[in-house]
Every structure is written in C-alpha cells, then in structure tokens.
C-alpha cells in the first residue's frame, strides 16, 4: 500500500514514529523492558524528533503508576504547546476520566495496554466518545519458548491468559483505531521487526498496524513496511543517535516508499 506507484489509490504515507518511554519525567530505554537507562528530557527530545521529520510521537509513561499522573499531564501540556505534529500518550490510564484529562492537556491519541486487557469495555467507551482515531491499543506479544504467542501487560512484566489472535480481533471489534504491535522477543535486540507477525495482517485489515520492537537500522523499517506495517516505531536507535529520523526516511524514499518529506 505504501509503495510509490502512479496507479495507487492511496496518497497516505507510511509513518516513522519515535517512541519516548518516560519514567520520573525523563526519557528512558530498557532492554526487553528492563534495565532503564536515562536518554534525556522528553520535551527537548520531542522537538528534536519533529525537526528531524518524525511523523508522530508516542509517549509511554512506563512508571505512571509509581510516578503519579499529574507530572505526566504537565509533560503532555508542554509537548502540545511545543509540537506541530500529532502525538499519542499512554501509561496509567484507568478510566474515561483519565482519557479526558490527557485529551484536555493536548494529546491527540491515547494508548491502552494493561487496561485494555483488564477492562476491554474502556476501548468501546473511548471509541464511542472520542472516535476510533483517538485510541491505540498497545499489544505486547511475546514468542514463548514453546513457540506460542503470549500477551503481556504491566509494561511487559505480566503474562495474561488471552489468546493472541482472538485479542487482535477483539480490540478491532471494540473500536480501536490503531494497533501498536510490540514484539517483546524482538524489543531491544536489534534483530529487526517481526515481519512474520506483520505479514499476517494483510492489506484489507481494517485498522492500521504500528510495528514496534527490534529495529536496528533502515533496512528493518523497509522490511516492516513491505511486510504490511502502516507505521514503524523505534526508540533506542533514535535516542542513542545511531540514526536520525531523517536518515531512516531518506532510505525509505530511496527505496520507493511513500513517505512525508520535510525540510524541502
């Protein structure tokens, strides 16, 4: 769908999305969801990524329950005043009232993970009240040692008894607008996105799929889009300065992918 072709019936571009995991007001990065490293100030990094050509940003407040919600809301307000691109926020959202607070602070979308599993009706409520475009469900999936696919919550720390395929169908039926698919077995490993998982969605899948987990270099982004991802998300390789968003996007453009060009 994103191959640049004159006969295409869609002008939509594939999105490149830096993810900022926030804990205690700082951007952090862990390996396989553990061992947090300080990566900088969220507002400053957000501005930097916008300048580099990021199409959207995702902020995940991974210590939200410990840190308290007010600091997260203040960060969202600052980001909303500084950015002119859309952004999603997630972490610590438990009720429709929490969702309202984040939208009121200026977020464009909310991301649900733990609460989507624990209280799936919240997906319907958000979708009905704010529209499906406002809700992203973060599906953290892990390839278990026995070869099965397991769903995790609580920042990847708790395995839940939910069937992966049924869960994907359910979040779509309940009205989510996008799925943020994190392959936990790839996260932080630098072995590329899980293209096999992505390929199973197909071109007619009714919502957009954001690929996450495992990016090491430009080729991984290209492979994910070819496999069927609508957007590609990465954290560490941007935070560590290994690649700029612009470098990734230039590579994709050179490989005939429809990408939003900036700075021209």
């Amino acid at each position: 769908m994103y191959v640049d072709d004159e006969n295409s019936n869609s002008d939509l571009t594939a999105r490149v999305i830096p993810c900022l995991d926030v804990a205690y007001g700082r951007v952090v990065k862990g390996t396989n969801f553990k061992q947090l490293l300080d990566m900088g100030d969220p507002v400053e990094l957000a501005k930097l990524y916008e300048q580099q050509g990021a199409d959207e940003l995702v902020f995940l407040d991974i210590k939200a329950s410990v840190d308290g919600q007010e600091s997260a809301l203040e960060m969202v307000r600052q980001v909303a005043c500084e950015l002119s691109i859309p952004f999603a926020v997630g972490g610590g959202i438990k009720t429709l009232d929490d969702v309202h607070k984040f939208f009121h602070a200026g977020a464009d979308k909310v991301t649900l993970n733990t609460m989507a599993v624990e209280k799936p009706a919240l997906i319907n409520e958000i979708s009905t009240q704010y529209g499906s475009q406002s809700i992203v469900v973060a599906v953290d999936v892990n390839h278990e040692a026995d070869g099965s696919l397991a769903i995790y919550t609580h920042g990847g720390s708790r395995r839940v008894d939910v069937d992966y395929h049924q869960w994907i169908q359910q979040v779509v039926d309940r009205g989510c607008g996008e799925i943020l698919l994190t392959a936990m077995h790839k996260d932080g490993t630098g072995s590329g996105f899980d293209t096999d998982l992505l390929a199973k969605f197909g071109a007619d899948f009714p919502v957009q799929v954001i690929a996450s987990g495992g990016a090491k270099g430009p080729q991984d982004f290209l492979d994910a889009i070819h496999a069927g991802a609508d957007a590609v998300l990465a954290a560490g390789l941007f935070h560590r300065g290994e690649y700029t968003v612009g470098e990734i996007k230039s590579f994709l453009i050179d490989n005939n992918i429809k990408i939003r060009k900036t700075g021209c």
Binding site: S10, L12, R15, D55, D204, Q208, D230
Partner: peptide
C-alpha cells in the same frame, strides 16, 4: 472508500495553490 478507516496520517496534497502545492498534510 478504503478498507482502513478512519484515514489517519499524512498525505501529499494535489493542489494548484502555491500555499499547498505538493505539501504533506495530516488527516483524521
């Protein structure tokens, strides 16, 4: 008329207006 709705994301404008020609805009 597209299987994935809403349309969410950036698309390049086809416009004769200099203010919009070939620019990328965010749609929802």
């Amino acid at each position: 008329q597209h299987p994935k709705t809403p349309m969410v994301g950036w698309a390049q404008l086809n416009s004769y207006k200099l203010t919009m020609k070939d620019q990328f805009a965010y749609f929802v």
